[in-house]
Design a protein around this nucleic acid. Structure first.
Lengths: 201, 201
DNA sequence: GTCTATAAGCCGATAGAC
DNA sequence: GTCTATCGGCTTATAGAC
């Protein structure tokens, strides 16, 4: 942030990415203009193109920031003693975000949903954060003794994303909390009786 | 639909609503222009405003069409012998739509997610189809003997919507199918042991 | 590196001929 | 009722002064 002369940037690139991430989350990709982002980031409109060649380039940077964010989250979870604790701490993240989620949805889910209607590469990239969480959850569930870890990870994360979508549509943070509580109980059940294949039964 | 002279309409209104529904599903609300809709519906651009005063008015008609669609679906399910059969037939709908869902998401979920970022009335209206399905599922689960029918309905539909979102993000119809299979098993478990409160355990 | 000014095109919405 | 032509505004992106 504090740059010496000759290479000074003033963190404008970072501010643009952060501003884009927030606006894209709140208004959606198509409804967010570069002018909006520039203004929210305190950067002149035309100057955006010095840091990002196109709007898609800026979106790519937002996705990369999300991937870093997920990576940092999962790294922090690694300290916890067991896979069940780690999985419950993961879903706890959406409990902590419940008010934002109930208003604008899950940042990862909404961005992926926004961009997966495309056909260029950006749709695949936008699924990165989700894919990373699924892979990690699969590892934890396997460590927990689950046979069909991938399917269980999908069901777990589908519960989170579906809960986030319904909480947003109904404008009710309680929906997210209820869903998180159910998923925590399910993880406990799974931890107690290892090797069970049915995620819901 | 078949009009006599003096009041002839040629079904243009219906074609506009159908075209708007399809394009809004595939490209999203903000990315779909009235010109796109008019062209897809075989109606001149300026003529759209004879049938709908604004773009939001047309969106409102799309939502109403979705509500009718949900109502027809649920009415068809009423013939089935028991609540468990009806619930399993409901989730079976997303299995049948799996290819579309894996490409463009669930029509109800994506439209609700698109519009719930707003603050005008349209965000609440867009949640109508989802709310209707939740209410119906709650009734079925209560008939099945569940104590916390509303929470179970939320968990069930969250599983569907989350599965649809993940299937879309990962571009994998199998994700939707796997999720539907899990939910069917869960309904069976629930039907066998009535009164259990935990949806996953 | 930073910023203003503006190009070129698409948007929702309107006016008015037929 | 139907359609063409078009307005004003906003969009992404660029040119070029400083």
């Amino acid at each position: 942030m504090t740059d010496s002369p000759g290479g000074k940037r003033g963190g404008k690139r970072e501010r643009l990415v952060a501003g884009a991430a927030e606006l894209v989350h709140r208004k959606g990709v198509a409804a967010t203009s570069l002018a909006d982002i520039a203004q929210a980031s305190g950067v002149p409109v035309g100057n955006v193109y010095y840091y990002f060649k196109t709007k898609d380039d800026l979106l790519r940077a937002v996705i990369e920031a999300q991937v870093d964010q997920v990576e940092a989250l999962l790294t922090g979870l690694a300290d916890l003693p067991g896979p069940a604790e780690r999985l419950k701490a993961l879903v706890g993240q959406w409990e902590r975000m419940r008010d934002v989620v109930a208003r604008y949805g899950c940042p990862f889910g909404t961005l992926a949903a926004d961009l997966d209607r495309r056909d260029d590469g950006l749709d695949v990239e936008a699924a990165g954060p989700i894919r990373r969480i699924l892979d990690w959850a699969e590892d934890q569930l396997r460590a927990l003794g689950a046979q069909d870890a991938r399917e269980l990870a999908t069901t777990l994360f589908a519960g989170i994303q579906g809960g986030a979508l319904l909480a947003g549509a109904l404008r009710d943070p309680e929906v997210m909390s209820t869903q998180v509580r159910h998923l925590r109980q399910w993880i406990d059940t799974l931890a107690r009786s290892r090797g069970r294949t049915s995620p819901n039964g």
